[in-house]
Design a protein around this nucleic acid. Structure first.
Lengths: 126, 126
DNA sequence: CGCCTTCGCTTACCATTGGTAAGTAGGCAC
DNA sequence: GTGCCTACTTACCAATGGTAAGCGAAGGCG
């Protein structure tokens, strides 16, 4: 079941590496939260997003949004007015990822207590 | 629908903050990859895990595993022999998270090409 | 005219995080 | 005694992220 590519490398391993790499870039805290917020709000401006994503710095917000835009997850629309007006919404790809990640949010909400209990137990060990 | 707690804070907001916090700790690159590897392999020793999780440093592996153990996601079993023998496997909680995150792996595998295309398009803009 | 405000950034500086590589424990084979 | 085994620590350095300040261009205000 291990196909070999023309260059001699293992295709399955290469694919796995690529997917793992992709997960590495996408599975980060801020990306997931921005994805969730935008998924629920539809369209938001930069500052509104900044308030909705509690705790994010402007720097990380711009950085995260740029990365998401580059990955085709969000669309950035600039309205050329003064003061500037820029808004963000998810692409179909972004919605897809949001839906895929939805299960994790549900899991987190459902098992919050268990995790807190596990932590307390762990912290009280000899 | 916004219940108010005895201390006056908004319960929905507090819950949301807690869940967001939890996502922040759990939605990190290495945790997700370790979760996946352990989910597929069942039980692995420290060094085997280190080889399976390509690119992780020993330091981050110990750190990630400790955190996951604290959160009740993995069980760490020490066999008191020399040289040391320690193995790791997922708890039910860990399997649950792995299953919840499974959708994201599938999404990543399915949309890899679209993302790469989006990146190329982005990188070639004026 | 000059000054302040607004919004979406960008930048300089510093703290925290993560990678690299070397060390440690402790028994067992040589 | 020397070296090897594994699962870590640790010291040191590079990269990442937070904080806070600045910027640019138009419009309102005195």
């Amino acid at each position: 079941m291990t196909a070999i590519a023309p260059d001699g490398s293992n295709v399955d391993l290469r694919l796995e590496a690529l997917v793992t790499d992709l997960i590495g870039r996408v599975a980060d805290k801020w990306t997931m939260i921005v994805l969730d917020v935008l998924g629920e709000a539809g369209t938001l401006r930069f500052t509104a997003l900044g308030h909705a994503v509690r705790g994010i710095s402007q720097k990380m917000l711009t950085q995260t949004l740029r990365q998401m835009e580059r990955d085709g997850l969000v669309i950035r629309t600039i309205h050329p007015v003064i003061p500037p007006h820029v808004d963000y919404c998810l692409t179909a790809l972004g919605h897809g990822l949001g839906d895929a990640f939805c299960g994790v949010w549900e899991w987190a909400a459902d098992h919050r207590d268990e995790i807190e209990a596990a932590r307390r137990a762990f912290d009280q060990r000899p």
